[in-house]
Structure formats: structure tokens, C-alpha cells
Nucleic acid binder design. Structure first.
Lengths: 122, 122
DNA sequence: TATTGTTATACTCTATAACTATA
DNA sequence: TATAGTTATAGAGTATAACAATA
């Protein structure tokens, strides 16, 4: 994240904003409270974050009932999310390049086990 | 760090304080500015951190010349650093337990390559 | 009654600027 | 002139409490 954050800043995005952009990209129709649970953020912090993205015309909020909002990316939001994804993938490639080729696959497998264990937390 | 921080809090230590405690343990005689460079902290933040540890009787500051201070752990500081080390090692063991045994060695080797590349940054 | 979204607020961590004293 | 240590301060991230509106 220390290396990614400056890359996001070039796009006028905080790390959390970039993350939320990707969360909406892969889960169109998601609500702010869904995002809060998924990313383990306090809803009190999600609200102003979404509003910033909304004001910049990156996300669209449409009420699904009297209290929930369905979120989706605008054209601009989708383009920016694509850029974010490119930066993240570039970063991962750079990291992998530092590992000898024969260790890359077992490394990714090991990471997958850690990730799976993390997902199963209480 | 998200999992370690609460463990440190039980010892009334912030994550940064626990880290500095270990830095002094393994580098007795180190100065605050050395620590700042080693851990990439702003010296403005190191000063009050060291002072907190000093006030709690965990570290000892002895002037080496008119402006530098040599840091070392007191008896209490050494005991607490030992506890910190135990918590860290326990955490690492718990993480490794989530990875199948045949992947553990290649995983650690891959991590070592990433670590080495990190050390060679500008 | 529980949940969604919201506002206000507080605390921690981190970063910057400015300063004193010393090498 | 450069460095060590210090102070004050500002910003970002995160957490809690309280609330209104709605399911």
C-alpha cells in the first residue's frame, strides 16, 4: 500500500477510494452498507467517501427503497476503475518479478491459503 | 499488524513502540535518529515515542556527545521486549500453520527475495 | 425492533515546518 | 554547513455515539 498510495494520488484517489471503486466495479448494485461490511469500514466513514465519488461523477446512486442506495460506476468511474486495476496489476507484476520464477507459483498458492483463512475469520 | 496491534495493546504498547523496543534490543547504543532512519519514521515522531518509553523506565538514554543519545533497554525494557518477541513469533507460527507444510519453505524463500529487494530501495 | 444512512466528534498515526544546540 | 533533538501543528484514517427515516 505504501507503494500504491502515491500511484492512486496521481489519479486524485485515496487508497480507500480506489478500493471502493473496484468493489463497485465488481459488485454493481452494491449498497454503502454492503461495502462497509465487505471492506470492514465504519459506515460513518463510507458515507462521505461515496459522496466524494458521487460529486466527481464517478458513481451513481439510485434509491432501491426508502433507505438503501444502489451504487454503480458511471462511464468516467468505469474508466478510472480500469486505470486503478492497471496500477494494481502492474504493482503485483513488479513484486512477482523480484521472486525467482520457480518460487512464484508456490508463493501464490501459499498466499491463497492465508487469504482463505482470513476470509473464514469470525 | 491488524492482529498484532491488539496483542501489543495488552502490554500498553503501540505497534511503533513495540517495534522500537525490538530495534533497541537488537541494536543497543542506537540513537533516536538511527531509529528514525532504520524504521523510516519522522524524527519528530521518534522523540515523543522514546520519551514515553523512557518515562516508563523501559529505555535508558545516555548522552554520547552534546546532541546524540545512546539508547539501551533497562531490565524492565528487556523483559517487555522479550514478551513482544514472543507475541511476534507466535503470530508468525500461527500464519505458517495456515499454509500446507510443503509450501512453507518456498513461501519463506519467496518472502526473503521480496525483503531483499525492499532493502535495496533508493 | 433492526437497519440504513448521516452528522459530529475524538483519537491515532504520520508529515511538515520551524527552531535550538551541537558536530 | 550539516546533523540531532525538539516543539507545534496539520492532515488522513479510523472509531464511537447519537440520530432520523425506513424496513
Amino acid at each position: 500500500m505504501a507503494e500504491l498510495t502515491p500511484r492512486f494520488m496521481e489519479m486524485d484517489l485515496r487508497a480507500s477510494e480506489a478500493t471502493v471503486l473496484l468493489a463497485i466495479k465488481y459488485n454493481p448494485g452494491i449498497t454503502p452498507s454492503d461495502i462497509s461490511r465487505m471492506l470492514d469500514m465504519a459506515t460513518a466513514n463510507t458515507t462521505p467517501l461515496i459522496r466524494r465519488l458521487d460529486k466527481r461523477g464517478l458513481v451513481e446512486r439510485t434509491p432501491v427503497n426508502g433507505r438503501s442506495h444502489s451504487l454503480s460506476l458511471t462511464r468516467d468511474g468505469g474508466d478510472l476503475a480500469e486505470k486503478v486495476l492497471g496500477v494494481v496489476e502492474d504493482h503485483e507484476r513488479r513484486l512477482m518479478d523480484k521472486i525467482p520464477e520457480e518460487l512464484q507459483k508456490p508463493f501464490m498458492e501459499a498466499i491463497a491459503y492465508l487469504w482463505k483463512a482470513e476470509e473464514q475469520l469470525p
